[in-house]
């Protein structure tokens, strides 16, 4: 009686292949959770270089500040804060909250990654000089992907709108996207004075498994339209 050829075949490849496949899948998923790939840079670093590079310096008064308005006197020196960020080309919007800086220099951000924070120590929207700094989480463990994760895909020339508390809409056009090792953000990004610009910041790179924090920041700079 002939032996069944199937019985002579070893069975070990099957569980090994299944286990190997599981490892591949797990590694794929965890690689994604370990942070987005750092997007390629575009644009010039000169876009962010302000004329005045002293962090925290008070921005000079704009020329419009001396203008008088009928009935109520001089025009405002400080514009109303932004309340909404929009990327009209992507049908994307986020609420904006004023945020501050803690004693150790860390910019506070809204916990909800769908919302973004406007640095109240920076320039006002449409103020004529200095950086309007808006930042938000790329992703959080409890909140999922953030609105500003779109900065990883944004392209040069895209329009970004900020809606102010008085209803005015100020538009900016993306000029550069640059990434930095966290902790090495150039101070001139946040320096008062220089050309008026919008600075959008989120995180990218790997997640440090010990701290849960990302290793890099991605910074998109946009210039006022018109």
């Amino acid at each position: 009686m002939a032996a069944d050829p199937d019985r002579r075949r070893p069975l070990w490849p099957v569980p090994v292949a299944v286990f190997g496949s599981m490892l591949v899948g797990w590694g794929f998923v965890m690689s994604g959770a370990a942070g987005p790939r750092t997007p390629p840079d575009f644009g010039s670093r000169s876009v962010i270089a302000a004329d005045s590079l002293v962090p925290g310096e008070v921005a000079p008064a704009g020329p419009d500040e001396a203008e008088a308005r009928p009935g109520v006197g001089a025009a405002t020196a400080t514009s109303p804060p932004p309340t909404e960020l929009r990327l009209p080309g992507r049908d994307l919007a986020a609420r904006v909250h004023p945020v501050g800086v803690t004693r150790d220099g860390v910019l506070q951000l809204p916990a909800d990654p769908r919302d973004v924070g406007w640095w109240a120590g920076g320039a006002g929207v449409g103020s004529g000089s200095g950086p309007v700094v808006v930042a938000g989480h790329v992703r959080t463990v409890g909140g999922g992907t953030g609105t500003l994760a779109t900065l990883l895909d944004v392209t040069e020339g895209e329009v970004v709108d900020l809606v102010r508390a008085d209803g005015a809409v100020v538009s900016y056009r993306v000029r550069s996207r640059l990434s930095y090792v966290k902790g090495d953000l150039p101070p001139e990004l946040f320096a008062a004075g220089g050309a008026h610009r919008l600075v959008l910041v989120t995180c990218t790179g790997d997640v440090d498994p010990d701290t849960g924090s990302y290793t890099r920041n991605v910074v998109v700079t946009a210039e006022p339209l018109g």
């Binding site: 959770a33 962090p55 925290g56 700094v133 992703r139 953000l185 910041v201 849960g212 990302y214």
Partner: peptide, 12 residues
């Protein structure tokens, strides 16, 4: 006001 030195904009 204080200068911005770090922007921890994400958690994994």
């Amino acid at each position: 006001r204080r200068p911005v030195e770090a922007v921890p904009a994400g958690e994994g």
